[in-house]
Amino acid sequence: MALLADYILTHLVYLSILVIFAAGVVVLYGLAGVFTLGHQGFMAIGAYFAAGIACLMPAGGSPILAAALLVASVIAGVGGAVAGGLLLTGPSVRLRGDYMALATLAFAEILVALIRNTEALGGMRGLDVASLLPRASGSARLPILGTYALASVAMAAGAVLAVQRLGRSRLGIALRALRDDELAARSMGLENRRARLISFTMGAGLCGLAGCLYAHFSGHVSPRDFGFVQGAMVLLYVVLGGSTAVGTVCAVAVVYFLDEGLKLRCFGLLTGGLGDALVNWKDAILAGLLIALLAWRPYGLLTANRLRSEP
């Protein structure tokens, strides 16, 4: 039973981190209409900055120092990610959809390539993040894990609520107007540059926050965690979720659940040959399923017809 609780709590943490990451992409793509393939770069910045600050922790340092470094790492991570986002603001205004996607992809891949080639950042192996949080081990494992799960779920909920509130605010409506029809919006006095600044600040910031949390909770960061496929998957969740905050959370949860389920042979229901096949072909099955879903409902699973226009 404890094993089950352990499993659930650990996955809750990672699920929450994924949700926060996805919330950032909802701001970037769902609200601002930026066709982004490089958001994993923001998460990487957040993770590596956090890891870097965490490494400043001397062995056996006081809990107060640990807490201070924790806060500092989050600030640095989010700040760094936001800086990266601001870097992309200018290009985003000038580049059309497909080209913008390529530019963001190039941005993220350059980052990853730089990290891979820098020994100080651990290169391909990655960095071990010094633990600033109490280790969840021994008898205290479940309660501590539970606290982490609670904290991360709370943060995820906060992120989702913030994005939702943004979407409904006057600012959010202006963002969506610019996304729907840029010329008409600009002719009505809405400025693209300001919109992009704000969107990248919040979007990249959320991605960076997810990166920080990931670094601290998983204890290890490597370039492989921030690959193009992971980033594309999150964009997929946002599209499937109809570009809304709540829809995205549902999509994330469902796919996460499916992924785990297939990995565990439908949670132990399918055994033998069929179960083996399921595990082996999990990624292919998921990819095929998601393609089919997208082809069926390209605007999100709950929006049957064309409510929104394309960025």
Binding site: L166, R170, L171, I173, A174, R176, A177, R179, D180, D181, L183, A184, A185, M188, G189, L190, E191, R194, A195, I198, T201, M202, R306, L307, R308, S309
Partner: peptide
Amino acid sequence: RLFPSLTILENVCVAMPSTERWSL
């Protein structure tokens, strides 16, 4: 050229001059 993802009231309101709109 209207904004299809906005209600018509939102369509109208978004065009109004307002300085505080851009404050996150």
